[in-house]
Nucleic acid binder design. Structure first.
Length: 567
RNA sequence: GGCCCCAUCGUCUAGGCAGGUCUAGGACACCGGGUUUUCAACCCGGCAACAGGGGUUCAAAUCCCCUUGGGGCUACCA
């Protein structure tokens, strides 16, 4: 007796003429909800949509899904816009740009949704619902106790408009649910998953309009994707289970012919387990604090600009401070938290070119051995059918390697531009360098892995002589070595006699000295390096001394001799 | 609990749909060596995988089933 099912499946399949016809004009969208910073998972989704639109000469649009009045944060939209802009992902229609299907904020499209809700209501395809959240929770718990799933289904008699009005007058919550047509198998044809079947009986009559009059995600996204003529819905796999419901809703609203192609990409998972989440940073901070001893909680709370109670709540896992507080506390403790949000990567000194390249390869590949690719190359190579099905882990090591390669690949001018922006954001003293100088000193750092590395290497030359911070490890490793201070004193005398600090002169002087003492250059160069830089990480010793100039070099050597000489 | 997705080196992955050419390729990480004025970069070499079981077949990483494992969803969140 399997015949009926087979027949049903067949009839569903046969209504689709060509499963994957290529639309004339591709339209993709990125539809974030403004609840905080854009994180890498979101950036990857945006990128894939963008890449596909660019590849196929289509349109990419940005739509802000601000339908949750409780969770929206006022600055989030701007943050998302900033982050996409930094990445170089530009939209053809959306906020700040407008477009024929605007507005692009869902909160400004309420009337539009209402019209469609009313239509469904009138056609008996949707119905009013008056339960409170508490009542629903109770029913859910009850089902759970019986080890059953809770699937909301319409009552035999649908409430009338009058009853809805009465309920509203009585102060009851009034929501609208979509009545999922029963007794059918819903076939979702996904471009990367293939055909996925769902039983209608397993899909609840989901809410399409909340009590506050706002649409839910599952409703607004269907209406907007249709109105905005979206042809490809490319999103994370976490939406696959929403798709049958959305598809049935779409069909009820607009008919099945206009259905978009669905592309559900794998989820990016964290090395901490589970999908990469914004909660990881506070979690990492908490773990680190617990591991540390003698943490000054009063000062920590001050650093994070939170109250003592708030900090206690955080330590007891009862509450989580906001991101700026988390960042500030991590900075106070000298911790490096895992980057999650796009801004985290900006602050850590990554290049957008490297981010884009890395993100593109997370769940996609060009089919050959190419890995380091520029934007144009990615666009040319991109194709939906090379998106992989399995989840991928976000590996920061590989990102660093990509960044190192792109630091060379982008070219001097671009690198200098990125560096300038990085320095300004970080408020680094290296900002004092003009463009010509900045260009020259960046070249001294060839092979650096991030912009932060370059900054760290160059910083010494832009602080006052008495502001040099001496890294204890470097001091121990270099200055405390037998003979180091004597050697440094000798170097000081020689340098004092040198009039012109050119590279050749310095090299001649230091190499000559090493030869004369029958030691390697390192014996001479290292104490000098630590004396002027405060650390054993700097550009070449000749570059470093020349950059600093005679006066400062001598002053810093004297400071060092005084400070570490007689200990 | 229910439903859905996924499964190749530690990690990202090629190969899978059109089974033999796969003693499974590349990259990152790691280990060893080289270069060297530090860090980094760079060069050479090495380690390392088809989750398990059953089928189908002359032949399975590749097709089918089961088990196991991982992930997602199960909201008046998106």
């Amino acid at each position: 007796m399997t015949l009926p099912l087979d027949l049903l499946t067949f009839s569903l399949l046969s209504t689709v003429r060509n499963p994957f016809p290529m639309p004339d004009h591709v339209v993709t969208r990125f539809a974030p909800s403004p609840t905080g910073y854009l994180h890498v998972g979101g950036a990857r989704t945006a990128l894939f949509n963008w890449l596909w639109a660019r590849r196929s000469g289509g349109t990419f649009l940005l739509r802000i899904e601000d339908t949750d009045q409780k969770r929206n944060t006022p600055t989030a939209t701007q943050q998302v816009i900033d982050d996409l802009t930094w990445l170089g992902i530009t939209w053809d229609e959306g906020p700040q740009k407008g477009g024929p299907q605007g507005p692009y904020f869902q909160s400004e499209r309420l009337e539009l949704y209402d019209g469609h809700v009313q239509r469904l209501l009138d056609e008996g395809k949707a119905y009013y619902c008056f339960e409170t959240t508490q009542e629903l929770d109770a029913r859910r718990k009850e089902a759970e106790a019986k080890k059953q799933g809770f699937i909301y289904r319409r009552p035999p008699q649908l409430p009338s408009e009058q009853e809805a009005a009465d309920a509203r007058a009585a102060g009851r919550p009034v929501t609208v649910r979509f009545a999922i047509p029963q007794d059918q198998t819903i076939l979702v044809s996904d471009l990367v998953r293939g055909d996925v079947r769902f039983e209608a009986s397993e899909i609840a009559d989901f809410i399409i309009r909340k009590n506050d009059g706002f649409p839910t995600y599952n409703f607004a996204c269907v209406v907007d994707d249709f109105l905005m003529k979206v042809t490809h819905v490319i999103r994370g796999q976490e939406h696959l289970n929403n798709t049958p419901g959305q598809q049935v809703l779409w069909t009820a609203l607009f008919g099945g012919d206009s259905l978009p192609k669905y592309v559900h990409m794998s989820v990016t998972v964290s090395d901490a387990g589970g999908k990469l989440s914004k909660r990881e940073r506070p979690k990492a901070l908490l773990t680190a604090i617990k591991k540390m001893q003698d943490v000054d909680l009063v000062r920590l709370a001050q650093a994070g600009r939170i109250s003592a109670e708030a900090l206690r709540g955080f330590l007891d896992k009862k509450s989580t401070p906001d991101m700026p507080s988390v960042d500030a506390m991590a900075a106070f403790l000298g911790l490096h938290l895992p980057e999650i949000n796009v801004v985290d990567f900006v602050k850590s000194g990554y290049l957008p070119e490297a981010m884009i390249n890395f993100l593109a390869l997370l769940g996609w590949n060009p089919g050959d051995d190419r890995e380091i690719m520029g934007l144009e190359e990615l666009i040319q190579a991109f194709d939906l059918d090379r998106i992989s099905k399995s989840n991928s882990l976000f590996d920061r090591n590989k990102l660093v390697a990509f960044n190192t390669e792109h630091m060379r690949k982008v070219g001097k001018e671009t690198l200098r531009r990125h560096m300038r922006a990085y320095l300004e954001r970080a408020g680094s003293p290296v900002q004092k360098a003009d463009d010509a100088l900045l260009g020259r000193i960046i070249e001294m750092c060839d092979g650096a892995r991030t912009l932060a590395d370059i900054e760290a290497k160059l910083r010494f030359a832009f602080v006052e002589d008495d502001e040099v911070r001496y890294d204890p490890k470097s001091v121990k490793k270099v200055l405390r070595k037998v003979g180091a201070m004597e050697c440094l004193a000798l170097v000081r005398d020689k340098l004092a006699q040198l009039d012109h600090f050119t590279e050749e002169a310095l090299e001649g002087l230091l190499r000559g000295l090493a030869e004369q003492k029958e030691v390697g250059l390192g014996k001479v160069a290292q104490p000098l390096r630590v004396a002027i830089c405060g650390s054993n990480v700097s550009p070449s010793i000749f570059d470093s001394v020349k950059l600093l100039g005679k006066e400062s070099t001598l002053a810093r050597i004297d400071n060092t001799l005084k400070k570490f000489g007689d200990e």
